[in-house]
């Protein structure tokens, strides 16, 4: 486990930066509260403090710095408060509760998995078509690239509304947005993988008078496996983003996207941050599971020397 030390070093640096940033971010609120409680702060009035530099304020009122690190509804909640929120909404709640982050994460994850499955299958199918059909090569690839230049935030509400008008609600519209984001890396990776055999390998199969089907299953498909796994990892992370974005425009009440939205409506910054972390953990989990499958498959196929 040589990677543990560098990872922990980076983590420590992030935590230190985070606490350091919380001081100027939260100092105004802390000073206002202290003033209300009768403490002496400098400058004395709120109007003067509003125009003052935040770091300067912190330096002039060092005794109020501790209050910035442990504030309710802080602008930037500190790590320990975010993680106590995470702890309270995961381990301490029943997972069937609507206040449980596990419950919300599962709602988002189920849309992610469905969308990822659709996107992966679609991506692989398109890649096979692109490699074997010149017309598809010329026509599909530019559209696939163009599809990714459209801001997902713009198209997501339309997908939701259109599907809703034909009576499709819930999981599927979100999964469609996930699929929309995740098929692209799969297409690109898979096309590259299916084309990875060199001229010599293709000539060799020609000397065996191999059919296109045989060439595909014996050479192209196995050769594409390393590329496929790499693009699946990117696709899985993109699918999660798609599912979260899909929850935003509808004002959904369930899912990580709903938690982000509700948190920002009600100024529950800790809720926002804990939903962000939950999303990150889910994404890391997905990528990790695909990585595990990759290692097992690659070892069995003898790719790893």
């Amino acid at each position: 486990m040589r990677s543990v030390v560098p990872i922990l070093t980076v983590l420590l640096a992030i935590v230190i930066l985070w606490y350091a940033a919380a001081v100027p971010m939260n100092i105004r609120t802390a000073l206002t509260q202290a003033e209300r409680d009768g403490a002496i702060v400098a400058p004395a009035t709120r109007v003067e403090r509003r125009d003052a530099n935040a770091i300067g304020l912190a330096l002039r009122n060092p005794s109020h710095i501790p209050a910035t690190l442990d504030q309710e509804r802080a602008r930037l909640p500190t790590p320990h408060r975010v993680f106590s929120e995470l702890w309270n909404t995961t381990v301490m709640k029943k997972i069937t509760s609507k206040r449980s982050l596990v419950f919300h994460a599962w709602i988002t994850l189920s849309a992610t998995l469905l969308g990822f499955a659709i996107g992966a299958v679609l991506g692989i199918a398109l890649a096979v078509g692109i490699v074997h059909n010149r017309a598809m090569d010329m026509s599909v690839m530019p559209w696939a690239i163009a599809s990714q230049t459209i801001p997902i935030l713009a198209i997501a509400p339309m997908i939701i509304v259109v599907l809703n008008s034909v009576g499709i609600q819930g999981l599927l519209p979100k999964a469609m947005i996930s699929a929309y984001l995740s098929f692209f890396p799969v297409v690109v990776g898979m096309v590259k993988g299916l084309r990875s055999p060199d001229a010599m390998q293709l000539d060799q199969l020609r000397t065996y008078n191999a059919s296109r089907t045989a060439t595909f299953f014996k050479l192209r498909l196995p050769a594409s496996v390393p590329y496929l796994f790499t693009s699946l990892k990117i696709g899985a992370a993109a699918a999660l983003i798609g599912a979260i974005v899909g929850e935003l425009p509808t004002g959904a009440v369930r899912g990580l996207g709903a938690r982000l939205l509700a948190g920002s409506y009600y100024g529950q910054t800790e809720q926002i941050w804990s939903a962000l972390f939950a999303a990150a953990f889910v994404a890391a989990g997905l990528v990790g599971i695909i990585g595990l499958f990759q290692r097992i498959t690659m070892n069995q196929m003898g790719f790893n020397r």
């Binding site: 000539d203 000397t207 496996v225 196929m301 003898g302």
Partner: peptide
């Protein structure tokens, strides 16, 4: 002759598939 598999061809590189024994 190629379609009748009349010859075996050995290339400059062995070109063995890494995923096959």
């Amino acid at each position: 002759a190629r379609r009748a598999r009349a010859y075996g061809y050995v290339f400059q590189a062995a070109g063995l598939y890494p995923w096959r024994t």
